[in-house]
Computed example of a mutant assay.
Amino acid sequence: MSKNKIITVQNVTVTISSEELDDYICITDIAGVKSDQSRSADIIRNWLRNRSTLEYLSVWEQLYNPKFKVFESEHFKKQAGLLTFTPSVSEWIEQTGAVGLYVKRGRFGGTYAHKDIAFEFASAISPTFKLYLIKEFQRLKEEENSKERLEWTAKRFLSKNNYLIQTDAVKNYLIPKSNYKDNLEWLAYAKEADILNVALFGFTAKAWRDANPEMAGKSNVRDFATVNELTVLSNLETHNAQMIREGRDKKERFTILKDIAEYQLDILNEAEKIKIEEKEETEETV
Score class of each variant (00 low, 15 high):
Leu196Pro: 04
Asn228Gln: 06
Ser219Tyr: 06
Ala193Tyr: 08
Ala199Phe: 06
Arg245Lys: 14
Pro213Cys: 02
Asp194Tyr: 03
His239Gln: 14
Ile256Met: 13
Ile256Glu: 13
Leu233Thr: 08
Gly202Trp: 05
Ser219Val: 02
Val221Phe: 00
Ser219Glu: 02
Leu230Trp: 04
Met243Cys: 08
Ser234Arg: 15
Asp194Ser: 04
Val227Met: 03
Asn197Lys: 00
His239Arg: 14
Thr238Val: 15
Lys206Gln: 08
Thr238Met: 15
Asn235Thr: 15
Gly217Glu: 08
Gly202Asn: 04
Ala199Lys: 05
Glu246Ile: 08
Ala205Met: 07
Gly247Asn: 06
Pro213Val: 01
Ala193Glu: 10
Ile195Asn: 03
Asp210Glu: 07
Thr204Glu: 03
Gln242Leu: 14
Asn228Gly: 05
Leu233Ile: 09
Ala207Gly: 10
Asp259Val: 11
Lys206Phe: 01
Ala211Phe: 03
Lys218Arg: 09
Asn212Glu: 01
Leu236Cys: 10
Lys206His: 02
Asp223Trp: 01
Leu233Gln: 11
Phe254His: 10
Pro213Asp: 01
Glu246Thr: 08
Lys251Gln: 15
Ala225Ser: 10
Arg209Asn: 05
Gly217Phe: 08
Ile195Ala: 04
Ala241Gly: 08
Ile256Arg: 13
Val221Ile: 09
Glu237His: 14
Ser219Lys: 01
Leu233Glu: 12
Leu196Ile: 13
Met215His: 04
Phe224Arg: 01
Met243Asn: 10
Glu252Pro: 07
Phe201Ile: 07
Arg222Ser: 12
Ala207Trp: 01
Phe254Ala: 11
Ala211Leu: 03
Lys191Arg: 12
Ala211Thr: 00
Ile256Val: 15
Arg209Thr: 01
Phe201Val: 08
Ser234Leu: 15
Lys250Asn: 15
Ala199Ile: 04
Gly202Asp: 03
Val227Tyr: 07
Leu257Ile: 07
Thr226Leu: 02
Trp208Ala: 00
Lys251Val: 13
